Amino acid sequence: MKTVAIAGSFDTKSTEYLYAKDLIESLELNTYIIHTGVSKSTFKPDISREEVVQAAGGDIKVLAQKKDIELTSEVLSKGMENLIPKLYEQGKFNGIIFFAGSKKTSLITPAMKALPIDVPKLMISRVSSENTSQYVGKNDLIMMPTIVDVDKSNFTSTKIAVFTIAEMVKFENN
């Protein structure tokens, strides 16, 4: 069975991401959970924030002591950029999805762009309605707009995104 990686902040958006996870699994796909949040996840992910930070050569305890959100986000982004292609090469997932507000979009897009062409990658973000060249560049990364931030009141955008990535993954390399 094919697998969709779900990367996200499972410290602040766990309800929303668990909803997406359940939807993906109801479509007969596996999920692979990667925590990109600053704080501890509310449930056990497949890849923890500590592992993401380590992939950038950092230490989560040191970052926590500094209490610098911008630095932590920068390290998480670099860790994702290093880690995501390796996880894909190991066969951990066939496609990846990330839901973000305006601040987190830049955290994951470098990692998505580091994946080979033809790997399904879907970014759901409010900045999708703006100039996205800084996020996409010359890549096949798909950005989908959401009118409001991904939250409990916006499960419609989540459903559309999940159905989109599911079909992309199901038909990838077929």
Rank of each mutant, 00 (worst) to 15 (best):
residue 109 T to K: 03
residue 151 D to T: 10
residue 77 S to G: 08
residue 113 K to T: 12
residue 9 S to F: 04
residue 66 K to V: 06
residue 77 S to Q: 06
residue 141 L to M: 09
residue 87 L to D: 05
residue 108 I to Q: 05
residue 97 I to M: 14
residue 144 M to W: 00
residue 125 S to F: 04
residue 42 T to K: 13
residue 102 S to A: 14
residue 119 V to I: 15
residue 35 H to N: 11
residue 24 I to A: 07
residue 88 Y to G: 03
residue 114 A to R: 04
residue 34 I to V: 12
residue 100 A to I: 00
residue 11 D to A: 15
residue 43 F to I: 15
residue 148 V to K: 11
residue 140 D to W: 03
residue 164 T to D: 08
residue 117 I to D: 10
residue 83 L to T: 03
residue 107 L to Q: 08
residue 23 L to R: 13
residue 53 V to A: 01
residue 110 P to F: 05
residue 116 P to M: 09
residue 166 A to G: 05
residue 71 L to D: 06
residue 102 S to H: 10
residue 31 T to S: 05
residue 87 L to H: 02
residue 130 E to S: 14
residue 133 S to Y: 10
residue 124 I to P: 00
residue 84 I to G: 01
residue 29 L to G: 06
residue 36 T to I: 05
residue 137 G to Y: 10
residue 105 T to L: 07
residue 151 D to K: 07
residue 11 D to H: 03
residue 157 S to L: 01
residue 39 S to I: 00
residue 60 I to C: 05
residue 48 S to I: 04
residue 92 K to L: 05
residue 15 T to S: 15
residue 93 F to Q: 03
residue 93 F to G: 06
residue 151 D to N: 15
residue 53 V to I: 15
residue 10 F to G: 02
residue 65 Q to F: 06
residue 83 L to P: 00
residue 42 T to H: 08
residue 120 P to C: 09
residue 21 K to E: 13
residue 148 V to S: 10
residue 83 L to G: 01
residue 142 I to S: 05
residue 117 I to M: 13
residue 8 G to A: 06
residue 148 V to D: 10
residue 128 S to F: 13
residue 110 P to I: 05
residue 33 I to P: 03
residue 104 K to I: 03
residue 153 S to F: 12
residue 49 R to D: 08
residue 150 V to S: 13
residue 49 R to H: 06
residue 59 D to K: 08
residue 134 Q to I: 13
residue 68 D to G: 07
residue 60 I to L: 15
residue 44 K to W: 02
residue 165 I to K: 02
residue 53 V to M: 07
residue 68 D to T: 06
residue 139 N to V: 04
residue 174 N to A: 13
residue 165 I to S: 03
residue 107 L to Y: 00
residue 152 K to D: 12
residue 152 K to C: 04
residue 149 D to H: 11
residue 165 I to R: 02
residue 145 P to H: 13
residue 174 N to L: 14
residue 164 T to V: 09
residue 19 Y to A: 11
residue 169 V to Q: 03
residue 55 A to T: 11
residue 26 S to M: 10
residue 135 Y to E: 08
residue 136 V to Q: 13
residue 168 M to T: 04
residue 48 S to D: 06
residue 154 N to A: 14
residue 83 L to M: 12
residue 129 S to E: 13
residue 134 Q to C: 10
residue 166 A to F: 02
residue 80 M to Y: 01
residue 68 D to R: 08
residue 70 E to D: 12
residue 113 K to F: 06
residue 31 T to W: 01
residue 120 P to E: 06
residue 29 L to R: 06
residue 33 I to A: 02
residue 62 V to R: 13
residue 14 S to E: 11
residue 30 N to T: 07
residue 57 G to V: 07
residue 114 A to E: 04
residue 2 K to S: 14
residue 6 I to H: 06
residue 131 N to Q: 08
residue 85 P to K: 12
residue 69 I to D: 09
residue 103 K to H: 12
residue 153 S to M: 11
residue 3 T to V: 10
residue 40 K to Q: 09
residue 100 A to H: 01
residue 104 K to T: 10
residue 146 T to A: 02
residue 13 K to T: 14
residue 66 K to Q: 15
residue 103 K to G: 07
residue 124 I to R: 01
residue 51 E to K: 12
residue 70 E to K: 15
residue 151 D to M: 07
residue 167 E to M: 13
residue 95 G to E: 04
residue 157 S to E: 08
